[in-house]
Computed example of a mutant assay.
Amino acid sequence: MVQSVIDYYLNLSEAMHFAKIPELSGDCGATYRMLSAYGSGSLQTIRFEDDMLLILISDYIPKDTFEKISEISEEYLEISRFETDSSSFKIGGRKINQVDKGIYCYVNTQKKTYTHCEGGKQVRFTKIILTKKYFDTFFRVHFGEGYEQSKPVTDYLLQNPNLPELNFVFQQIRDCQAEGKTLRLYLEGKVIELLSLIMKGMEQERQHIPVKLDYRDIRNLKKTVTLMKNNLTAYPTGDELAKMAGMSPARYLLAFRKHYGTTPYEYLKEMRLNQALLMLKNSDYGIGTIAEKVGYHNSGHFARLFKTAYGLGPREYRKVHGIK
């Protein structure tokens, strides 16, 4: 069993057949290229002086499907954004879980974890690894000594994986072109911003919504989210979603807000805008085409929603990133 999560991830590149690129590496971090016999692409690690925080940025395609096994004794929190859905994992003897696109949160359980990456498919993610010491220091400043450690954070992120603000911060982390100490200063500021946004969301008072949810209710709510996620261009009515969840329309709206902290419409909008963000960066589709692909027939309406969520319009976003 590995003791330190930082050591584990820093040694991971060699185990995954990556070679360091000296001219792109230094004291603040390293950039690796996957050996051609095993695939193509890169992996970047940004290390911080106190070894309580690590950021990983990946974009690679393995030739063959591989399994990565980890067992780390140190307590840590991982917050990631996946831009691909070619990975899966299982913890201990549990069933295999698919990693979907979006925000993902993991608290180390000190159990053996198996991660699978599918051969021939792109693996693109941004990971923030926070040790317990870093995490505790931040949240105790704001919540005091009596806070409930990581559970409220993981619950919040698992229920709200599509928040535009969180996705945008991850995109800024990935796009940062700074180097050396300036890079570390910028990125740690973004990590603090991310944690602050999580804390702000956690402070919303959902407990006053007058509905109690059991396991079956939550499972049925997740079915409606899956329906929306699998077809972003569809416009399911509230009655249709409620019927799928086995609830009355009124109870469904209350239950959805209780569990996810927002309305079904807002949740669908967040998924659409996050998909649009990725398409603006990673495709050459026109604005109108992207709007249609995420369910908006009026590109002007789409642009207004995008600007409200991210602070700049889709064309401005592309201009900032040098995309024509």
Results as ranks from 00 to 15, higher is better:
10 L>H: 00
316 E>P: 07
151 K>I: 10
138 F>P: 01
117 C>H: 11
90 K>V: 05
87 S>H: 02
103 I>F: 06
109 T>R: 15
320 V>F: 11
66 F>P: 01
310 Y>L: 06
237 T>H: 08
195 L>R: 05
6 I>V: 09
200 K>T: 13
246 G>Y: 11
139 F>G: 04
271 M>G: 04
260 Y>I: 04
296 Y>A: 07
60 Y>D: 01
68 K>N: 11
100 D>W: 03
153 V>P: 08
296 Y>C: 07
310 Y>R: 04
92 G>E: 09
250 A>M: 11
44 Q>S: 07
32 Y>V: 00
296 Y>S: 04
138 F>Q: 02
161 P>E: 08
78 E>T: 11
238 G>R: 08
134 Y>H: 10
62 P>M: 02
172 Q>H: 04
280 L>Y: 05
291 A>M: 10
152 P>R: 06
41 G>V: 00
292 E>L: 10
266 E>R: 12
308 T>C: 06
203 E>I: 02
321 H>F: 13
141 V>W: 12
83 E>V: 01
259 H>G: 03
164 P>H: 06
252 Y>Q: 12
139 F>V: 05
205 E>H: 08
96 I>P: 02
94 R>M: 12
231 N>D: 15
295 G>T: 10
22 P>Y: 01
48 F>C: 02
60 Y>F: 13
126 T>P: 00
300 G>F: 12
316 E>W: 09
132 K>M: 12
284 D>W: 10
102 G>E: 06
246 G>S: 12
77 L>F: 10
170 F>C: 00
169 V>T: 12
170 F>W: 00
119 G>D: 01
106 Y>M: 05
138 F>W: 13
286 G>F: 11
277 L>N: 03
89 F>A: 05
85 D>Y: 04
281 K>E: 09
268 L>A: 13
47 R>P: 00
232 L>P: 03
253 L>I: 09
257 R>Y: 08
204 Q>V: 08
142 H>Y: 15
79 I>M: 06
239 D>F: 05
217 D>R: 08
316 E>S: 13
150 S>C: 10
304 R>N: 14
224 T>M: 07
324 K>C: 09
87 S>W: 02
114 Y>N: 07
160 N>S: 14
221 L>W: 10
117 C>W: 01
226 T>D: 13
22 P>V: 00
246 G>W: 07
180 G>Q: 04
63 K>H: 09
186 Y>A: 04
188 E>Y: 02
28 C>Q: 01
66 F>K: 10
53 L>E: 01
282 N>D: 11
212 K>Q: 14
291 A>I: 12
178 A>D: 10
271 M>F: 06
